[in-house]
Amino acid sequence: MSRGFPILKGWLDRLTLPLLLLAGWQATALWLDKPTILPRLDAVASVLMQPTAKILITGSLIENMAVSLIRVVLGFLLAAGTAIPLGLAMGYFQRVERWVDSSVEILRPIPPLAWVPLILAWLGIRSLADWFPFLQTSLIGASIQFTTVVIIFIGAFFPVLLNTIQGVRRIPREYIESARTLGARGWALLHKVLIPASLPMVVTGLRIGLGIGWMCLVAAEMMPGSTAGLGYLIWYAYELLRADIIVAGMIAIGLIGFGMDKGFRRLEARLVWESSG
């Protein structure tokens, strides 16, 4: 029977464990009856189902998601925009690599969150609204503090850098030499050979960097100075013992992270030339 519906069977296999876990959760929550420790699933669902409703005195779920997403995208773009050119240079020119490598290796093991106090001391709670006054009135604009953006930048920077360096180093020598004997050099060599040849590894680096940036962000939002975002939301909900909001916030964090990773994996799959038609 199930032989005839392999797709159905696949889904059944995938969904069985999650459904069992959810059922177990709900049963335990009902039996325990302590919503501050283990919220009922329907309470969590009702938070998720009203994403535009104001939560406590912070903004709505959607607004907090938007704050977090804008922060992560800004920090991520900043990281990609600096790490890719530096990685290309370090991968191609041994001289640049010798210059920069030791600094990178010393800075790399420092967890991005260890930078929070210093960055707070430098930048305080200044936000985008300090530069663009018209943003002052919106919760989102006023909440894009530079501190969090810098933390994401630090988190995303190193994976992008290291993968870009590797991407360039793993280019077979023959690609570059063929191109040079066909007359390519300088800028043409860079953008017609080095960049396309290293692109699959660069995109892998971007995917890992975005994932790490996202995790750093949520943690950074729990630090002092934060006034919005999903991390802030679940921390604030903890102080008010609202476990239903905590769990809803965690689910939102997971779903966004999952979506970003999936998007980049699709892009990676398209860049594997071997399978492209």
Partner: peptide, 17 residues
């Protein structure tokens, strides 16, 4: 190197992209 003197290698000769 110059396009006056082109090389054909044994492996990785073409740009896969």
């Amino acid at each position: 190197p110059s396009a006056q003197r082109c090389v054909v290698f044994q492996r990785y000769t073409l740009f896969p992209w």
